[in-house]
Design a protein around this nucleic acid. Structure first.
Lengths: 260, 260
DNA sequence: GTAAGCGTCCCTCTAAGTGGGGCGAATGAA
DNA sequence: TTCATTCGCCCCACTTAGAGGGACGCTTAC
């Protein structure tokens, strides 16, 4: 338990100056075409070096030459598609989940939508003695859990109604339905879900959707705990932490906020 | 024996061994997760080097660690999305078009679909004195040109019918419609279009669709010339050349053939 | 006209990067 | 269990990869 252990991969790898500089160039070009001379200035390298690295990247298809300097290259299209197919979002999310659990002490979940169900895919248990029993692999009606609701935020209201009716066993009073939809509207506007279990088990959860490169909700993140722990006075801080973490995971899987 | 100069960007850039080796690693990982030791063996570098480079790529998000070794990393999702937005397919296609024109002597076009129209976007003039007048920027009813037909190959037959009717001014005999759809079916099965202009100007064209990373037809490639040049005895060779070039461009913009 | 900016090339020198070697931890066979 | 193999990871001495100064030709702006 060394306190100075780096939990991330932030540990600078020695002996890769050339590679790192080349990747720095990629990071500049991602914002739009840029000239070799500007690259040299921005990154603090000689223009010879910037030129050589950019040419090398171009020769491999990572960059292309446009009228405005170097731009992203076709190889990235190929890599992007393959990455979409191969990358496991849950694996990407795990380190973020661990940090969130470490920071808050709560149990953190991720899950995805499976038709009318929400499937819990991974969990990082927190430091509390009282634990929510939901385990990876568990499936619950999607309209019934905080995680599930977060996965539904982009759906039209009719879908909310259908799934709520379904989760409730078919018959719902007009009043209950109206309340449910109104609540969902609030969740959608806020961008996160605050959910008190209707099963009377005193479980409360906070959930936020994670968006992928297409800005679609692909998975959702949540913390769940006994309402006894998850008290009103700390909810605001937790919401902020969860929304922030969900945003970070989104960025890690390619989400870019509108307008850049 | 360097008989000819390299006309492509194949010119080895000197002074980038580290970068090139790192990109070699990316090329291995693209086929699926691979262990550091296997990378060293496959690429003929010491395991130290393979390990260091892979770690460096991981620290930048280009690779991630899975149970089966190194896999593609989340950074590629981000780069892939940005590349999709920024890359101009026509620019990617140009060098291939130039080579095709050089090899065949014919005039080569690319174009994309704009609703019910096909827009010619770029052209490489061939060596022939008689030139098809179509210029970049020209717009034609999509069902009426070889290029346009190639862009429609993935559409359902009802769309073919609608657009053919539209291009013909609204009224078409049942016989003509049937022939048109039958022809389109043949084109679709073959994967390319052989088109004789119905305007009586003696223009013949061969066109093939180019598919992007999502396997959707994004642009199309064609050669067009006077039927006097584009004779039956050379059509087969030209078709092969065009289909091959269209495939190469597709790969350059991220298309991967099904099944890998 | 001049000047400033660009991309490209060559050459020298040094420190970046290579690879040999070693260590501990898994994994699997005996 | 023990032993053998192979993995990831680390250290360090040698050398060559690559950084950067400088020059040249070209284009654009003034």
């Amino acid at each position: 338990m060394t306190a100075q252990r780096e939990d991330k991969a932030d540990v600078e790898v020695k002996g890769t100056q050339t590679l790192m500089r080349a990747l720095d160039i990629m990071d500049e070009v991602i914002d739009g075409p840029i000239r070799a001379a500007d690259l040299a200035r921005k990154l603090g390298m000689s223009k010879t070096t910037a030129h050589r690295l950019a040419q090398a990247l171009k020769s491999r298809g990572y960059l292309s030459v446009t009228n405005d300097g170097f731009g992203l290259g076709p190889k990235l299209l190929e890599l992007g598609v393959m990455a979409t197919q191969q990358i496991d979002y849950v694996r990407v999310a795990r380190p973020f989940m661990e940090k969130l659990s470490e920071d808050t002490g709560f149990c953190v979940f991720v899950g995805k939508r499976e038709g009318d169900w929400s499937r819990h895919l991974d969990r990082v248990t927190g430091r509390q003695r009282l634990r929510v029993a939901t385990a990876p692999g568990d499936r619950r009606p999607i309209a019934e859990t905080g995680l599930g609701k977060a996965l539904l935020l982009d759906e039209p209201e009719e879908v909310w109604e259908d799934l709520y009716r379904q989760a409730s066993g078919g018959k719902v009073s007009a009043r209950a339905m109206k309340d449910y939809v109104a609540q969902m509207r609030v969740h959608k506007a806020r961008g996160y879900v605050l959910h008190d279990s209707e099963l009377g088990d005193g479980v409360r959860s906070i959930a936020a959707p994670i968006r992928d490169a297409r800005r679609q909700i692909c998975i959702a993140l949540s913390i769940a705990s006994a309402a006894h722990y998850l008290t009103d006075d700390i909810v605001d801080d937790l919401v902020a932490a969860i929304v922030a973490t969900a945003g970070e995971i989104g960025e890690a899987v390619g989400y870019r906020a509108p307008r850049g």
